[in-house]
Amino acid sequence: MSDESWAANSVVRRSMQSNRSRDTKPELVLRRALHARGLRYRVCTKPLPDLRMKADIVFRPARVAVEIKGCFWHGCPQHYRRPAANSAYWSAKVARNIARDEKNAEALANAGWLLIAVWEHDDSTATAAMISDAVHKRRYSS
Rank of each mutant, 00 (worst) to 15 (best):
T125Q: 15
E67G: 05
A105P: 06
R37K: 11
I98R: 03
K69T: 06
D123M: 11
E106M: 12
A92S: 13
V135P: 07
G70Y: 02
G70Q: 02
A88V: 12
A65H: 00
A117I: 02
V12E: 15
S91W: 12
L30R: 00
A62I: 04
A88R: 15
H121P: 07
V29K: 13
E4V: 12
E67L: 05
A7K: 06
T127L: 06
V118Y: 05
N104D: 10
Y80V: 00
R22A: 07
D50W: 12
W90F: 10
D101K: 09
Y89A: 08
L51P: 01
V64L: 12
R14D: 13
V58R: 02
K103V: 10
R31K: 13
S141Q: 09
E4I: 12
R63I: 04
G70E: 01
A134F: 05
A111V: 13
M130T: 10
W113K: 02
D133P: 09
V66C: 04
A84E: 04
L34T: 09
S91R: 07
E27M: 01
V118D: 14
I131V: 12
Y41F: 12
S21G: 07
T45H: 12
K137H: 11
W6G: 11
V64H: 08
A55E: 00
K69N: 14
Y140N: 11
L115C: 05
A8H: 14
A117Q: 15
A88D: 11
W119G: 14
N97D: 08
V11S: 08
A134R: 02
A36K: 15
L34P: 04
A105L: 13
L51Y: 07
M130E: 06
S87Q: 07
L48H: 02
I98A: 03
S10G: 09
L108E: 01
S142M: 10
P61W: 08
D123T: 11
A62K: 03
P61K: 06
N110H: 15
K54R: 11
A88M: 15
I131M: 07
L30K: 00
L30G: 00
M16Q: 01
M1G: 15
A36W: 11
P77I: 03
L51E: 10
D23A: 03
P61E: 04
S2M: 10
W90I: 03
C71T: 13
T45W: 04
S21A: 05
S21C: 03
D122C: 09
G38R: 07
N9Y: 08
A92I: 03
I116Q: 07
A88S: 15
R13M: 02
R14W: 14
A8P: 08
M53Y: 10
Q17D: 09
R31T: 01
V64F: 11
C76S: 02
E102Q: 15
A111D: 12
R32C: 14
E27I: 00
A117H: 04
